[in-house]
Design a protein around this nucleic acid. Structure first.
Length: 476
RNA sequence: CGGGGUGUAGCGCAGUUGGCUAGCGUACCUGCUUUGGGAGCAGGUGGUCGUCAGUUCGAGUCUGACCACCCCGACCA
């Protein structure tokens, strides 16, 4: 094992691929673009499922399961949907020893299969809203992969709702987005910008899409959560109608929203540093690791006892803790656990037994402090909260420092090429301007922020009057 | 699917104008000594050199095809 260089624009890609494997989070699957989540990595995903799952349920969406095998004819029902997804579909044409009469796709997303049931289940306004969720795997044949960030198979949750009115659907969009923002910022400590996608960036088949956009340490943007307003596009294709109070038949208004294992990539590439992973306490599978240190057999017994005692106390107080009795030098263990991103390390040595204290070392700023046994639990609880806040604040400052403002295209190109990060700049709304900027600078619109995304100015590309002020940037 | 690159031990790499038993670091196993910031010594395990074909007395090394992965583009959560 070796030490890692500080991640920067030049080597962040190698650092990332290295660190996720060294930390025992991730391994490559045998088929290109597939992943193996190891216990440490899956624990993080499980923590996400627990927190986010509870929030989704509070929002009124209940878990379901729909098949991963979807008839091809379902996917082709919504015109724009199939146009967007066809290049990414995995199609089964041969099974059970014979050619299938109708090809079957492996779930690229579940709109079509779910909505074919919505049309059965929804008859009356009394059946609305219908709100469901599922935690499943997804297959989209990608040409280019990056662990967690983009893969052929990934895990996600997808929530789907149907409403009686457009207003209700819009309300659902807002509540889902604020749920997501809270999740990212309070749980993963990842600051996100919420906003509306431009038409060219929206989900295939949506009326409009909204998203949570993160800025990672290499200055690239990441769409880390999406919430789509599907309008009546799918309800018309799938014939999802209900009889309203006024005895008129109407099509439902729908939304769908999801967060995937991509969030793990965002997590790692938001907080990681030159020593490896940095995990916010709320998602860290291990919040506290105890490293015992001794010189001889007599010390060893005392220290083992004290370590065991501290470990039990931590567990009784619902702190996720482990001790490390591996036969390695303490320094080796310090580096190992720092690389794996554990928020707090406790060192227990002869001096600590003698003084009725322990040493607390925090991962985020690597500060060490001596703490008396009596105050241990309070100190650790405070520290966990403090680390969580500090990580968020640090990440938010990074986003602020790397968000630029300009109305000059030369400056714009220069910023994108040399500084990277986000650029807030006006856009006239013309697809061609958006595309030209992309072709010339590689920057795309990330979203039009709900906060400070409008005003009056001139388009960064054509110079015409503009009222939209999207965030631009290179993206994964 | 276009341009570039790389395939040699779990991981990272070296291997000269074709030559003898394919090497180094690290990891791993055994033993002893160690343990407050990546320990030391001794011994040991581990390879059809990406695949297939060709040239040659002889191929990790040369030729061709194929495959995989990585980087850069087009497409996307």
């Amino acid at each position: 094992m070796e030490s890692y260089k500080k991640p920067d624009r030049e080597n962040v890609s190698n650092w990332y691929i290295d660190i996720i494997q060294q930390a025992k989070l991730y391994d490559y699957g045998p088929v290109k673009g597939t992943m193996v989540l190891r216990p440490y990595g899956f624990s993080i995903w499980k923590a996400i499922q627990q927190y986010l799952g509870a929030e989704i349920e509070k929002n009124g969406c209940y878990d379901t399961y729909f098949p991963s095998l979807i008839p091809e004819s379902f996917i082709t029902k919504e015109k724009e949907h199939i146009e967007g997804f066809s290049p990414e579909l995995a199609l089964i044409t041969y099974a059970g020893g014979e050619k299938l009469s109708e090809p079957i796709t492996i779930r690229p997303t579940s709109e079509t299969i779910m909505y074919s049931y919505f049309s059965k289940w929804i008859q009356s306004w009394r059946d609305l809203p219908l709100k469901i969720n599922q935690w499943v795997n997804i297959v989209r044949w990608e040409k280019r992969n990056l662990p967690f960030i983009r893969g052929t198979e990934f895990l996600w949750h997808e929530a789907h709702t149907a409403h009686a009115t457009e207003i209700d659907a819009d309300e659902q969009i807002k509540s889902a987005l604020s749920l997501y923002k809270r999740f990212f910022e309070e749980f993963l400590a990842i600051p996100v910008i919420t906003g509306k996608k431009t038409p060219s960036q929206k989900f295939a088949g949506a009326a409009y899409s909204t998203s949570c956009e993160a800025l990672l340490i290499d200055g690239k943007g990441l769409q880390i959560g999406t919430v789509h307003n599907l309008g009546q596009n799918f309800s018309k294709s799938f014939d999802i109608k209900f009889m309203n109070v006024d005895n008129n038949e109407n099509y439902v208004w729908q939304t769908s929203w999801g967060i995937s294992t991509r969030a793990l990539g965002g997590l790692i590439l938001t907080h990681g540093d030159e020593k490896g992973l940095v995990l916010p306490p709320k998602v860290a599978p291990i919040q506290v690791v105890i490293v015992p240190i001794w010189k001889n057999e007599k010390e060893k017994t005392d220290i083992q006892n004290k370590t065991e005692e501290v470990l039990q106390t931590l567990k009784l107080n619902n702190i996720r803790a482990e001790s490390d009795f591996r036969n390695e030098k303490p320094g080796w263990k310090f580096n190992d656990w720092e690389m794996r991103g554990v928020p707090i390390r406790i060192e227990i040595g002869p001096k600590d037994v003698e003084n009725n204290s322990v040493i607390l070392a925090r991962r985020d700023n690597r500060a060490k402090n001596v703490v008396k046994n009596d105050n241990l639990i309070d100190e650790i609880n405070n520290l966990l909260i403090d680390i969580q806040h500090r990580l968020f604040n640090k990440a938010q400052k990074f986003v602020e420092d790397n968000t630029h403002y300009t109305d000059n295209y030369k400056d714009f190109s220069d910023i994108i090429e040399n500084k990277s990060g986000f650029v807030s700049a006006y856009w006239c709304g013309d697809d061609n301007c958006e595309k030209s900027v992309k072709d010339e600078t590689k920057a795309t619109t990330r979203c039009i922020p709900f906060d400070n995304g409008t005003g009056e100015g001139t388009c960064i590309y054509c110079g015409n009057k503009a009222t939209l002020k999207p965030i631009w940037g290179k993206a994964y």
